[in-house]
């Protein structure tokens, strides 16, 4: 928990005259689950895209594994691309490939492992995220929402990343599947020694699995442990967690 894996320093993002981020500071420590929270349009996705090198910020530094990727230098980026995995909101599975091929794709791209062994690894990962054997040869269009998320998570884990970024991992899932997915994320964090950065609106998953929360308010980030953030005096944060705290209190009583 001590070593910072990702550091965002004084990040500014401006689109024309519209400022999204104005001096964002964020540190992600090894082996933690960090939840990013914010209102619609507060720039959660822009922050994530900046951390992934998909977006060039107006100014500021983004250090991932100690490399500044804010300038989107392709050498530095490829150094990182071997070591992170991303679960996009809609899954972003390649529609022309089967589920199994989707998971095999990044391994085949980054290593020289033989095809048959790559297939075994892909099967292992798919089994690990809880997909049934019958689903392996299906195309993404034939899967349910929950299966798409799981398959996409298996693909994100394919090259044994140190960090996974999850964009709304439980959105669109029913509460039971969402809770299962939360447990899966916890399990993977503990067992694969992962660091997890997730954007979520799902109160239950934020409060049950996140070690720390980073809230985007007033174009900056307030980050602290989940415990502290839920009691933070900022009006937006109070409004956001207000209902939940009541619920949590009820649950405790």
């Amino acid at each position: 928990m001590s070593e910072p894996l990702i550091q965002v320093r004084n990040l500014v993002n401006r689109f024309d005259s519209h400022t999204v981020h104005d001096g964002v500071e964020l540190t992600v420590f090894e082996h933690e689950i960090l939840g990013i929270v914010g209102g619609s349009g507060s720039g959660k996705s822009v922050l994530l895209r900046t951390m992934l090198g998909l977006h060039t910020p107006t100014s500021g530094e983004v250090l991932v594994f100690g490399e500044d990727i804010a300038c989107r230098d392709s050498g530095k980026l490829s150094h990182c691309q071997h070591r992170w995995g991303v679960l996009f909101q809609g899954g972003a599975l390649f529609s022309g490939l089967t589920v199994l091929e989707n998971v095999m794709a990044p391994i085949l791209e980054h290593t020289d492992i033989s095809n048959s062994f790559v297939e075994e690894l892909a099967r292992l990962k798919l089994t690990m995220v809880g997909l049934a054997e019958e689903g392996f040869d299906k195309f993404p269009s034939e899967l349910s929402g929950g299966m798409v998320k799981r398959a996409a998570l298996a693909r994100a884990l394919a090259i044994e990343p140190r960090v996974v970024f999850l964009d709304e991992p439980t959105s669109g899932l029913d509460p039971i599947s969402a809770a299962d997915f939360d447990q899966l994320i916890l399990y993977l964090r503990d067992h694969l020694r992962l660091t997890v950065v997730m954007i979520s609106h799902d109160m239950d998953s934020l409060l049950t699995i996140c070690d720390r929360l980073a809230v985007i308010v007033d174009k900056r980030i307030i980050a602290d442990t989940t415990e502290v953030i839920t009691r933070h005096p900022h009006p937006w944060i109070r409004a956001y967690f207000g209902g939940v705290r009541g619920r949590a209190a009820l649950g405790a009583a």
Partner: peptide
């Protein structure tokens, strides 16, 4: 920390080509 991975592999239901 090594055993953890071994444990994982042992715990996961083994995927085998049908």
């Amino acid at each position: 920390e090594h055993l953890q991975f071994i444990d994982d592999v042992l715990n996961i239901e083994k995927p085998h080509k049908s």
